[in-house]
Simulated scan of single mutants.
Amino acid sequence: MSATQRTTIETVSVVRPLKIISLICLVIALALSIVSLSTTWWLRSGSFRTGLFLECTSTSEPTHNAPLKDAPMPGKCHKPSRDTGFIIAVAVLMLIGLVLTALAALTNICGLSKSDIRRKYLFYRIATACAIIAVILELIALIVFPSAFYVKMRDYGSRRDWEVDWSYGLAWGATLFTFGASLLLICDKEHEEVYYKEKTIYNPPPELIN
């Protein structure tokens, strides 16, 4: 009597390296965004510098610089004291982008940890959408900030030399890393996450078992 056989198809879930790289990019973007938002080096002129939540004056103000209107005393910081509508708008956009980036990282982790294929895809789609929206909001904020400041420059008093500083650069870095993460999530095809393995099991006849 011939042996009987049974064929089964197993679904195997594979963790794609691009998903891991996108998660690393999102974590880096989070770190850069937090540092950027918490520092006051978005814009600088002499010893005066301003961030999105505080403006400060160092103790070493060059004597040739004209005084700044309503600037903090040397060595002090306070909230921006002028018409700061554009700064508030930029801060809100950047904070929303930070929250969305964190949500994208969290849903990416959930997608990597789930074994159910449908739930994996759902979490990856949410992560992709959050990352793309975060990039759009941050791009708007980073373009508006220097443009609106140029229009409002007269509110800072006498003419001075101004330059954007490293906190603003970190914000751009965070946006680029988030953009890279969104591209990786989009380009990594869903069907490559799963493959099917066929396995044939042979059962010997009963007389051979005995």
Rank of each mutant, 00 (worst) to 15 (best):
K197T: 15
G173V: 03
L183Q: 01
M94N: 09
L100P: 10
S58F: 08
E193S: 15
T40I: 14
A91R: 14
A91G: 08
A105M: 03
I34T: 07
I132Q: 08
W41P: 12
K69Y: 12
I20D: 06
T128L: 12
T11C: 05
K197L: 08
E138I: 03
L54F: 06
A89W: 13
M1F: 15
K114L: 12
V14F: 10
L184W: 09
E198N: 05
E192I: 14
Y156D: 11
L43S: 01
A148E: 04
A174C: 07
T50L: 09
V194N: 03
A31V: 09
S2I: 13
V99E: 06
A174D: 00
A131M: 04
L103D: 09
C130Y: 03
I140L: 06
P17R: 15
S81A: 15
T8D: 13
P74R: 00
A134R: 02
I209V: 13
H64R: 12
I209L: 14
K114D: 14
S60N: 11
I117F: 02
L185I: 05
N65H: 10
Y150D: 08
Y195S: 12
C56S: 02
D165P: 00
N203A: 11
T40F: 04
K120F: 04
I21E: 09
F86L: 00
I9S: 13
E207V: 15
R154W: 06
F145W: 05
S47M: 02
Y156R: 00
F149R: 05
G111W: 01
L122H: 13
V144P: 07
I109K: 00
C25N: 11
A102P: 13
L98W: 06
R82T: 14
H191D: 15
N65K: 13
Y202Q: 10
N108L: 05
A29P: 03
T84Q: 07
C56Y: 01
L137F: 11
N108W: 00
W172F: 05
I24T: 13
L142I: 10
L30S: 10
R125Y: 02
K197S: 14
L184N: 00
F149S: 08
D161P: 05
S115H: 12
R49Y: 09
T8E: 14
